[in-house]
Design a protein around this nucleic acid. Structure first.
Ligand SMILES: [Mn+2]
Ligand SMILES: [Mn+2]
Ligand SMILES: [Zn+2]
Ligand SMILES: [Zn+2]
Lengths: 150, 150
DNA sequence: GATCAAATGAAAATAATTTTTATTTGTACC
DNA sequence: GGTACAAATAAAAATTATTTTCATTTGATC
């Protein structure tokens, strides 16, 4: 993701185009990994004059609300964020070892899921689906360098 | 869930049978709702001599690790807990309005989901699946008393 | 009943996240 | 290019869920 793509997204969302927002998107959009708010902050600080951690939180929240960024769920009580440029509804495979996030080809939520709910008069508004495991690189025989062991 | 069922679970897990553990299980096991650690604490305090909040956290964590209790994911940064006596792998529908949790009939994770991962040499260890919406009682025309509006 | 590891209470510590308020900046308009 | 104003940000402090520590109590086993 380059700055132009970031600009287009902000324009579409009717958000002001600011350097901080572009940096956050660029930071997350060029990593195949999920990051915490603090990690995003640490990385941006190296390349930008100055930015506060609350600003990072605010931007991340905005972008999650807008659907640009996805939350990744982990057992620790931190929030993690991932940006994928893939359009359309889909879900993710998350590597427990190297933090890599990969797209699943389609929403694997079957029709059977909704039947039970609808039969009892309710309706579905959203769903969370995340598959955890160990990615190919981390599972491989020689443990590629790109994968650190947790 | 009564005290006897709680005893049996603790025995199976090789955990000491203590009044506090039985109370936590009884509290969660007799509500069709998810609760936070603090809410479990507040309810138990009314009925038991004394119990500390850290103890509630410790017990909840143990029971989650043992698979007896399920975590419910919400947007706020709190952890929520739900106990269902249903055996076997399954997932849940969660009402945004009244906090009710209902079982989905089966794991709706299709085979297609795992293909992508396996094709690239990785393997799956776990998955998170939660369906959010509004339950039948909360959707109904007369908003039954059992459902409070959030 | 004695023993000892496991469980708990109480208080303090931790750390992620949010709020507040003053200041700065991007955009629309001229 | 300059102005006006709402939106965005910095900095510091506050909040709060959760965890840790350590002294004390308790359940299981013999
Ligand atoms: Mn994706
Ligand atoms: Mn269930
Ligand atoms: Zn990996
Ligand atoms: Zn409901």
């Amino acid at each position: 993701m380059d700055k132009e793509q970031g600009r287009a997204i902000l324009k579409r969302l009717k958000l002001k185009i600011t350097p901080k927002r572009l940096e956050v998107m660029s930071c997350l959009g060029n990593e195949p990994l999920y990051l915490s708010a603090d990690e995003v902050w640490q990385r941006i600080k190296l390349r930008v004059a100055s930015i506060g951690l609350p600003t990072v939180y605010r931007i991340l929240d905005e972008l999650v609300a807008a659907g640009v960024i996805t939350r990744i769920f982990q057992a620790d009580r931190k929030q993690y964020y991932f940006l994928c440029t893939n359009q359309g509804h889909h879900h993710h495979f998350v590597c427990e070892s190297c933090r890599r996030v990969e797209d699943l080809e389609q929403c694997v939520l079957g029709e059977g899921a909704l039947e039970t709910v609808q039969r009892s008069g309710g309706h579905v508004t959203s769903h969370i689906l995340q598959i955890n495991g160990v990615c190919g690189a981390c599972s491989g025989p020689h443990q590629e360098a790109s994968c650190r062991t947790a």
